[in-house]
C-alpha cells in the first residue's frame, strides 16, 4: 500500500500539491483523473521517487520496486524490440526467465514477430505497446502509468485499454493510472479519484465493482459513473473559468 500523508510540493514557483493525502490499495487499479496541469504527473513522480515531497510523508514505496509507463514510449532506438525489454530485465531476472518474460509479454500485445525489429520500424501505437510490455514484464511491486494512451487515436486507444485489462487479469498487480480521459478510468479503474485544479484536492472517490472483463461503457452502472465524473469535472471547470 502506498500512502501519501499531507504531501506538499512546489515546482519552481507553482504550488502543485498542498496537504494532499491518498492511500493506494494493493492489487487494484487506481485511476486518477483531473484537468490538465493539476499535478497528476507530479503525483506519480513523487510515488516513483523521481521527486521528493517538500512537506509531508510518502510511505510504502521505500523498498518497493516501481515500474513506469511514460507519456512517451521512451525506447532505446539502438536496441531491438526484444532488447528494449531485456534492457530493464537484465539485472533482476535470470537469462532464461528473461527470455520467457519477453516472449510472454510480446506475444500478449502482438509484437513477438517484431522482436528483432528496431523501434524506427514501428508505428506510434506499436511503440507505446512496447513501452507497456516493458513496464509489465519488469518485476514490480507497483506500476505507475502516466497517460500511456495520450498520443493515440480512439480505436488504437480502446484496443490498448483492452490489452492492459487482459494483461492485468492474467496477473493482477497494484497499478496507478493517471489519465484525463474518463473512458480510460471507466474501463480500467477499480477506484477512480477525481482531482481538482492546482493545488490538487480530491473531489470524488468512486469505486467500480464490475470485473474488468465485463465492463461495457453503455451498460449500467458505468453510464451512471460517467455522468457523475462529468458533473464533478464540469463544476470544477466552472470554478476555474467562471467566465466561460
Amino acid at each position: 500500500m502506498i500512502k501519501l500523508d499531507r504531501v506538499g510540493k512546489t515546482l519552481g514557483r507553482t504550488r502543485v500539491l498542498s496537504d494532499f493525502s491518498l492511500c493506494v490499495e494493493k492489487g487494484k487499479i487506481t485511476c486518477i483523473i483531473g484537468p490538465s496541469g493539476c499535478g497528476k504527473t507530479t503525483l506519480l513522480q513523487l510515488m516513483a521517487g523521481l521527486e521528493q515531497p517538500d512537506t509531508g510523508r510518502i510511505t510504502g514505496t521505500e523498498e518497493a520496486r516501481v515500474s513506469y509507463v511514460f507519456q512517451e514510449p521512451r525506447l532505446l532506438l539502438w536496441k531491438t524490440v526484444a532488447q528494449n525489454i531485456a534492457f530493464v530485465l537484465q539485472d533482476v531476472v535470470t537469462p532464461a526467465r528473461r527470455q520467457e518474460l519477453i516472449k510472454e509479454y510480446l506475444s500478449m500485445v502482438g509484437l513477438y514477430e517484431y522482436r528483432d525489429s528496431y523501434p524506427k520500424a514501428l508505428s506510434g501505437g506499436m511503440k507505446q505497446r512496447l513501452a507497456l510490455c516493458r513496464a509489465f514484464a519488469y518485476p514490480h511491486d507497483f506500476l505507475l502509468m502516466d497517460e500511456p494512451f495520450k498520443s493515440l487515436d480512439t480505436p488504437l486507444r480502446l484496443g490498448l485499454v483492452r490489452q492492459v485489462a487482459r494483461i492485468w487479469q492474467a496477473n493482477p498487480q497494484t497499478v496507478v493510472l493517471v489519465t484525463h480521459d474518463i473512458m480510460d478510468a471507466l474501463l480500467l479503474g477499480h477506484r477512480v479519484i477525481v482531482l481538482s485544479a492546482r493545488p490538487a484536492a480530491i473531489l470524488d472517490d468512486i469505486r467500480i465493482d464490475v470485473p474488468l472483463a465485463q465492463r461495457n461503457v453503455v451498460q449500467e452502472p458505468l453510464p451512471g459513473y460517467h455522468a457523475r465524473m462529468l458533473a464533478v469535472l464540469e463544476a470544477e471547470n466552472k470554478k476555474s473559468f467562471p467566465n466561460l
Binding site: 523521481l50 515500474s67 513506469y68 521512451r74
Partner: peptide, 13 residues
C-alpha cells in the same frame, strides 16, 4: 533526459 529518467525508474546501474 527522458531516457535518463526512465533508466532511474528501472534502476539501471
Amino acid at each position: 533526459l527522458q531516457l535518463m529518467q526512465m533508466s532511474v525508474v528501472f534502476r539501471i546501474s
